[in-house]
Amino acid sequence: MVKLITKEGLIPSHVNKLFYLMAPFVAVALGLISIAVIPFGPEITIGPVTTWMQLTDLRIGILFVIAVSSVGVYGVALGGWASNNKYSLLGGLRSSAQMISYELPLALAVAAPLLLANTLSFRDMVNYQSGYWLGFIPRWNLIPEIIAFIVFMIAGFAETNRVPFDLPEAENELVAGFHTEYSSMNFAAFFMAEYSNMVTVTAVATLLFLGGWQPPFPAPYSDVVPILVFALAGLIAVYHGLHPARRMDKFTLPATGLVFLGIAAIFGLSLFVPVLKTILMALFWFCGKILILLFVFIWVRATLPRFRYDQLMRFAWIFLFPLAMLNLLATSLIVALTTK
């Protein structure tokens, strides 16, 4: 990132300058704007102030995220077109066609949990998912809506142009796709947009299907988990620091281990401070779930090869779309039969 800022920004002579410079920043702005409506935790009271751990709550927060993601294609399409280069243009065209196609299954997959919870607000969505079935199974939408979750994640991969759906930037056919002509900060901006889109998609998946900041175990057990996780990480780091494989490890690993142990101590301390506990627990579970989903993104990237273009379109229209549609139909049938 920092390295790319310091590089010289080249503007090729044959580009459409205004749109060429505008495209990366459109992409970044639209990638970051969704974070505004995503809640990180429950209502907290610090002294006289009671607030939600969220920038703003819209009654239509979920629609807002869908709207922003549907407009997000312009950054890529414009970048590809303004570069005035046939590979970039092909990348931009592919990206717009792909995003329109995968928008449909995405929206249909989102609609199913909305039907269950009967709300468009993220807060109410998470509150709906609190509690446990039989005392230990979390009431997450993941369990009744497992199909919707899978469709959402696949469509999310396509919306963020990640492997195996990264046709717009397929290196071996299109040089580098829509950002072939970009350099320096503009190039970095496209990547920032891509990664912030990833975070948004995983955060929305967490809120809609994985219960947001609700812990997966009932309260007394779930409070201990972060302490155990961080203490274990710290102890492992200290152990490896005491048996170093390289010379640097003698200093870096124990230092990291101490930091982790410190975090564990903070979590332990927070058990006695209710305010701190609410904040830290919510953040721990929310960020933990997001990180697990992000790990899946990277994992898939390292595992799967890229689709061919016709396979990509056929997969969206013949498989994913009917699947999401059937799931929505089944969900609405169940909701209609169970409510008065």
Binding site: L58, A67, S70, Y74, A77, L78, G92, L93, S96
Partner: peptide
């Protein structure tokens, strides 16, 4: 009109105009 505002962005800006831009790029 919060619903209609979001529908405006999703349908118009997100679908119809993407089609327009797509066709303009395709025909160059």
């Amino acid at each position: 009109g919060e619903f209609i505002a979001m529908a405006q962005i999703i349908v118009y800006a997100g679908a119809i105009m993407v089609l327009f831009v797509f066709v303009i790029m395709l025909l160059n």
